[in-house]
Amino acid sequence: MSGAGGLTLPVLRVALYEGRGARPLDGAHRFAVMQTLLEKGYRVTRIGSGDASRRPDDGNSLAVLGRFTEPQPAEAVGDAGGRVWFRDIGDETPDAVAALVEAIRAECEVHEPGGWKPWFPVIDFDRCTNCMQCLSFCLFDVYGVSKGGQIQVQNHDNCKTDCPACSRVCPEVAILFPKYRHGPIHGGEIQADDVRREAMKVDISALLGGDIYAALRDRSAKAKSRFSKERDEERALKERQKCLVKLQENLDIPAEVLASLPTLDEIQAKAEAAKTRAQAAIDAAAARQEG
């Protein structure tokens, strides 16, 4: 699913309340309840002291769960105006507790957690030189430019899950994907060797024709012409596959992403538009420096 929209909607938070007026959970029960709620995408705050009658919510919806020894209202208004629900969880199983929380979420109509793997580039501004190569490269409008002319990640949920390709075109190794398998892209410290190796990856894209999308286009165009001239369907397919495999291997682009690329004409148009935006940002930055 795309996380579009879900990124701005409010969420339901959960407080596991074990202060005055509630019996504490034992460690194993506390662990199991928190583990289950976390896996379902709920943020859980464990609170072991205080007074359940105070409701320092943050204006969002809050579910307060506890083994209450004092009566609590089913629902109240929090200190910051958010809605607060109280539920006695007694010795309920973690799944039953999760069902209580799900019911509250349905009632308050906030966004259902999960469903989107938060995968997007994160820029290390200690390294970034604002060269805009990432903006030129990305076909999915993930990058943009701030009012101050700085590169930014603007459309996180446009990013293609598990595709770290833009990190490979960054000459400064400044793009991280925290959920990537390998370093330094996962955020591990950068060694001199990493910089050399990442630079090689960029060279590989050069090897493919200076611009991997251009390469993709050219190869495919060649394949197409061969197909029309020679009616050699198999060869055309092989040619294209060879290029795709090379891209996949060298830039670690998932096959699904390549399969979902726009048509060649759209790629051309998008690549041109992205390059124009990048150039405009570079020009504006230069003008600002001169001024």
């Binding site: 943020r43 072991g48 938060p118 949920d157």
Partner: peptide, 19 residues
């Protein structure tokens, strides 16, 4: 959980950052 300390457990800091 065993230590009985107060803490905040979040499902995914990356998602919170995007949001």
């Amino acid at each position: 959980a065993d230590a009985g300390v107060d803490f905040d457990a979040v499902p995914d800091l990356c998602e919170m950052s995007a949001r």
